[in-house]
Design a binder for these strands. Structure first.
Lengths: 250, 250
DNA sequence: CGTTGGTTTGACTTCGATCAACCAGTGTGG
DNA sequence: CCACACTGGTTGATCGAAGTCAAACCAACG
């Protein structure tokens, strides 16, 4: 299941947190050089995950959290009756698996959407270390709380926004995440299918296509295939806040 | 803003965690008697909150988390353009305010839906104490992670269920929470309005009314006003899993 | 009693789902 | 090398679930 294949074990890479490019977004954010060094001792190696393969599956026991080093993942949850939904997209600097803590078991599948590298962090060691390093505890708490805030925002989106507004909000979120990682916030490539986006936003893939068409017609974005160019960020923002044409449903 | 009024200060009640009725659901769950005693030292008093008044507002700085002792709360978030949405309902044993940690600021308003009592827990002291008491840290992590799981389930609900299924899921959730608190899981009183429920589930209040009517027509529940009687729990569960009439939208 | 806030029900509209056709790449095997 | 299947994306036509608007109802309360 989530056991790394022999080939990926071979690919294990020894590197430390201090020299990591996404260091400032990850667990070690705001920690001293010494403390970061100590964090490195419990993340001894990186793991390669091939595009399309699973890092872990729903039901797998929680051994490690995974910090995404490079690459892109989606997490999906399936309900009793087999319906599946995308619950998140993760990129460099994101911490994966924190929803597993309450039951010592991953509730989601994690699938790589491109060839990726993650840093497994043994959870027991992490808890132990966070007791000794208050900045690490604080960092962990921050990440937990951010995830909760992100989910609340997501709920707000699903509860109050129209399909087109959701799509705009999705693009804006991607844009912001690209920016904080030092990439262009206006030109980037989507790693997921329309169906993934739809599932994430609570819409059908056809609706995603149509929403994109509308945003394109308004001259806000230029999207062909998975290549996104945001032509007017401020217009996108206004659109979400109802300036497009409010007095609508919801 | 979130400063307790003089009258509520007068009402401060000195009690400890060990003797609390919702002790097993709250922070002290799974902790030894000694450790629970230590937890009590940082929650020296309870606070009364009158029905309809706010415990804190969005934007207030994070000083304390609040464990609900008795009563019922809703938390609401408002977006830039003034639209407001209910993000959660909290009852005895629930911990309120954990979404404030990432920004040291409450992102939500917290409103009492009936006369309530909460135990403020100074967050800095809590962090300090959790370093010394691993069971407390574990308890905190469990609560964080549970909140994340709950939100994921909520997102799944909003993304995949019809209005009637959402209403059924909502009633089932309330039922489960009543059960874990030792109350009847089949007969209880709702503390919130139809509009609150609708906001929480991403629906209009009229749709809530109609959904209730449908569940009633199916003989699953008997709801008049805010008094709920669940006539057939298993039927409700099946209904959510598509046995009602799948092949529908979404 | 009249006011008020919350709930219910009806008539109509509309957004997004469904179903279906079609297109563009991209492998794959004969 | 070309026919073919296959996956992912786009667009159109139709339909139904839920939103909107409106009216009536009810209980609580001053």
């Amino acid at each position: 299941m989530n056991v790394p294949s022999i080939s990926s074990l071979k690919q294990a890479i020894k590197k430390n947190c201090s020299s990591c490019q996404v260091h400032e977004l990850c667990l070690s954010a705001g920690m001293s050089a010494d403390d970061t060094e100590r964090l490195s001792t419990i993340t001894p190696q990186r793991l390669r995950v091939r595009k399309g393969s699973a890092l872990y599956h729903a039901g797998d026991p929680l051994r490690s959290l995974y910090a995404v080093h490079v690459g892109f993942f989606k997490t999906t949850m399936s309900s009793e009756d087999g319906r599946e939904q995308v619950t998140g997209f993760l990129m460099g600097g994101d911490l994966m698996g924190i929803d597993a803590i309450s039951n010592d078991m991953h509730p989601c599948h994690s699938i790589a959407l491109e060839d990726s590298e993650v840093c497994p962090v043994n959870f027991n060691q992490l808890q132990k270390l966070s007791r000794e390093l208050p900045p690490l505890q604080h960092s962990l708490n921050r990440i937990f709380s951010q995830e909760i805030v992100r989910n609340h925002e997501m709920l707000q989106l699903m509860g109050t926004l129209s399909a087109e507004e959701r799509m705009a909000a999705f693009l804006l979120d991607m844009s912001n995440r690209m920016r904080t990682r030092g990439y262009s916030p206006t030109t980037f490539v989507l790693r997921m299918t329309r169906e993934d986006i739809g599932s994430y936003l609570g819409l059908r893939l056809e609706t995603i296509c149509r929403a994109i068409a509308v945003l394109r017609d308004h001259g806000m974005v230029s999207i062909s295939g998975r290549t996104v160019e945001i032509l007017c960020l401020s217009q996108l923002i206004q659109f979400i806040n109802g300036v497009g044409h409010r007095s609508h449903q919801r």
